[in-house]
């Protein structure tokens, strides 16, 4: 029986990342769904970058960014006392970057599907913008929000390259499930690798079946 620590760590990481991305993703996706700014395609492209870039590229730049001698890394050290790279916090930060499109794109599609109509109706019934977003847009986008969360969660669990580069392989801190599988294979512990791999395969499959059964209209656009 393999150590279940990496599994729990992966679940923890995915839950925290999904929570953070939901808070960031809703306003960003709302802005993308409603803006007519010229900047929109640029922001959309930046949001979609993690879909097309090799994880090593993202991991490489994140590593540089999180280095204690870089501004972000230094700020983190002075704020918390620990380094961002090779820590759980660093993993969360990296996951939030590479899973961003999996949150933002389904949300944006869902918000666009709701459209201006219900929001205008709410405005003419004395609802402020925030009121209308909270009580009309979000409830009407419920399935899209659920899809976005499930995809973000599942994708975070499945990531390997970025995690390896910014987190390394530290038990209880950065050794997530995908890293553990890699480790087991390297050490020719195929039985343990099988258990974790099959578990991840079944988990991913069930998740995706759930997502597609839930809704066919909020699929990712790029991938």
């Amino acid at each position: 029986m393999p150590d279940l620590g990496p599994v729990l760590l992966s679940l923890h990481l995915a839950a925290v990342t999904t929570g953070i991305l939901l808070v960031i993703g809703v306003p960003l996706a709302y802005w993308l769904a409603t803006t007519q700014a010229r900047l929109k395609p640029v922001v959309e492209a930046v949001t979609a970058l993690p879909l097309v870039l090799p994880p090593t590229v993202i991991g490489f730049y994140l590593l540089i960014l999180m280095n204690p001698s870089a501004p972000l890394g230094a700020a983190w050290v002075s704020l918390t006392g620990g380094t961002l790279s090779f820590s759980f916090s660093g993993l969360v930060f990296a996951s939030a970057i590479y899973s961003l499109p999996f949150m933002v794109q389904p949300l944006q599609s869902a918000f666009e599907a709701v459209g201006r109509g219900p929001m205008e109706a709410a405005a003419t019934l004395r609802a402020s913008r925030l009121d209308a977003v909270w009580n009309v847009l979000l409830p009407q986008s419920a399935r899209g929000i659920l899809t976005a969360c499930v995809l973000t969660f599942a994708h975070t669990i499945g990531e390997f390259g970025v995690v390896l580069m910014v987190g390394g392989n530290i038990p209880e801190r950065t050794r997530v499930i995908s890293i553990a599988i890699y480790e087991h294979v390297e050490s020719v512990e195929y039985a343990e690798a099988h258990i974790l791999s099959a578990g991840l395969l079944v988990f991913s499959f069930v998740t995706l079946v759930g997502v597609y059964a839930l809704n066919r209209s909020y699929r990712l656009r790029v991938s």
Partner: peptide, 15 residues
């Protein structure tokens, strides 16, 4: 803003 104008609007498609 629309929500402060005290108008009600009935849309063609009810909404």
């Amino acid at each position: 803003a629309a929500h402060r104008r005290a108008v009600a609007y009935v849309f063609q498609d009810a909404r």
